[in-house]
Design a protein around this nucleic acid. Sequence first.
DNA 1: TATGATAAGCGACAGGTTGTCACATTTTTG
DNA 2: CAAAAATGTGACAACCTGTCGCTTATCATA
Lengths: 191, 191
Amino acid sequence: MEAATREFSRRPFSEASINQIIKDAGIPRGSFYMYFQDKEDLFRYLMKGYVDQLLLVLEELLIREQGDIFEALLALYDYVQRKQDARQLGEIGAMAAIVGCNSGLQKTTILDMVEPGVVLERLKKLINPELLDLRQEGDLNDILALLLLVAGPLIYNGVQCRRDEAAQAHLRSVMEILKHGMARKSCPAAT
Amino acid sequence: MEAATREFSRRPFSEASINQIIKDAGIPRGSFYMYFQDKEDLFRYLMKGYVDQLLLVLEELLIREQGDIFEALLALYDYVQRKQDARQLGEIGAMAAIVGCNSGLQKTTILDMVEPGVVLERLKKLINPELLDLRQEGDLNDILALLLLVAGPLIYNGVQCRRDEAAQAHLRSVMEILKHGMARKSCPAAT
DNA sequence: TATGATAAGCGACAGGTTGTCACATTTTTG
DNA sequence: CAAAAATGTGACAACCTGTCGCTTATCATA
């Protein structure tokens, strides 16, 4: 796992080499194929663990924010940036390194790693729908998917850049847009 | 170009083989490297052409809709679905096939193909900012990037699925959310 | 038109990759 | 404790890519 994380952090997925990983790990070729079908299988396994950790944090924040998904996502960004500042990102940092490891041509988003349904189901349980305050009964799944689609890259950005005020402001402004756009009642007065 | 389109439509980028392309095209290996640096270079070149075509359509629609980017994006979805129904998608269909060509692990979004700045600059010239009616002066670039981030996958979905009412409704509802969320004045009454 | 310089075309090749498979070794089980 | 089942192992075939010395075409100029 350590060797795989190292390799995937160094090169984009398509260029990562099983050869390198097994050489680094000091295990023979055949053993690798005993446990993983191929490079993608290994990558998915690795990611699943890291994504689970991030999801765990988000769930905790969601509870602390009493089901407010907007606040939870903003808090997740903060969390990630604080850890980043303290250079304590650990496992999540490894994930970011791996996921961020793209050739510029192909980006791998966090959500693509896990079956999308799973993430959504886990989050739905903790969300207070009243706080979402939906204008019309859009499918909660669709709404959440939209939120994560938008928040994902922005939070990922937070992992990459140390304390980037602009990025944080951007996330906040985007969240505002989504919150207002989804709101049932009339908008509060403009700033 | 034809051989390349065929190959990229068949396999995900990472699995596509230059060997296959040159065999199919009947050109020698060296000739390929005379014109393209590598597989990615070829892919980008191919995509640039197709994306330009789609952007051209969007620009036309933006003019027809008098600078309303929301309506233009909805119209783009319609356009793409009509063409799809009439099996006239041609070049754009080829692009969709290629871009859609993903391993499930790595998705290549249309926007990743062209320098993002270029798309934004071209669209900004045609957008009527008054129609966007921004609540606060968020950077127009950021707003547009958000719009395209969200609309991109949905429209791409329109190219893939023939006449998918649900997808269209989803796009419309997402556009509503963004439009309301960005609006300066109070929201119109709920539906 | 002849000529030489410059550009383009070509494919064998080296060095890399992956997944497999027959065999060695360890573990389990009757 | 021996046979059977599971696991470990690395040489191997089949593939891939980018290069490089060589051949061929093009084109400006004498």
